[in-house]
Structure formats: C-alpha cells, structure tokens
C-alpha cells in the first residue's frame, strides 16, 4: 500500500484497490468487504468509509444502491471504556 494509493478507510488505512480486490474475491456486501479488508473495523465503525465502500461495490458489481445492504450497526456506537461499560469505572 504506497502513498499514491487512495485511502478509503482512514481508521485502518485501507485503499480503494484493496476493496476492489475483496469484491473480486467474492464480497457482495459492505460486511463482506469489511471482513476481508478490515475497512470499517476501526474506531469510527464505518461512519467515514461505509458509504464510500457502497459506491465502489455498486460500480464494481452493477448492483443498484437500494440492493446494497448497509453494514450492521452494533453497540457501542461510540467507543466506551471497559470500565464504564462494565460499571466499574469509578471504584
């Protein structure tokens, strides 16, 4: 991955070429691309790159935007420490 590459996922530094390669290997959903490349696995959880990945997927496969199911949102939708999540932050 050299500097001239176009980074689509900022958190994990994944280029648009790596995303196209994942599609060539059979990914047909945003989640499939995430699992193969890590695009969307970073701290922002796809808030920055998910819709860009969808556009690349539509262009590479010809799928219509409404047929591309978006990635799955899961808690925590914003990072939270183990201490706060576990309710042990203050002691």
């Amino acid at each position: 991955m050299n500097d001239k590459d176009l980074l689509v996922c900022r958190c994990e530094e994944i280029s648009d070429e790596e995303i196209r390669e994942a599609i060539r290997q059979g990914a047909r959903t945003i989640t499939g691309i995430k699992r193969r490349t890590r695009a969307g696995m970073g701290l922002c959880q796809g808030r920055t790159c998910q819709r860009l990945v969808a556009r690349i997927l539509a262009e590479e496969t010809g799928m219509k935007p409404e047929d591309i199911d978006p990635g799955t949102d899961r808690p925590p939708v914003k990072p939270v420490s183990f201490g706060v999540l576990g309710g042990v932050a203050n002691d």
């Binding site: 925590p76 990072p79 939270v80 183990f82 576990g86 042990v88």
Partner: peptide, 30 residues
Amino acid sequence: TCHNGVLKALAQRAVRFFPVMKDINVIRSY
C-alpha cells in the same frame, strides 16, 4: 442482537482479570 446486560458482564469480568483494561475502549460487539 447484542444485549447490554451481557456486554456489561463481559466488560466487568475482563477488568477483574486485567485491571489495566479499565481505560481501554470497546469499539464493537457482536
């Protein structure tokens, strides 16, 4: 789906064995 009660219990158990995790962030669950 992820149930918050389970996530909380997992986090609690993790901090019990590695207290240093108290300040480390959870970014996802599945």
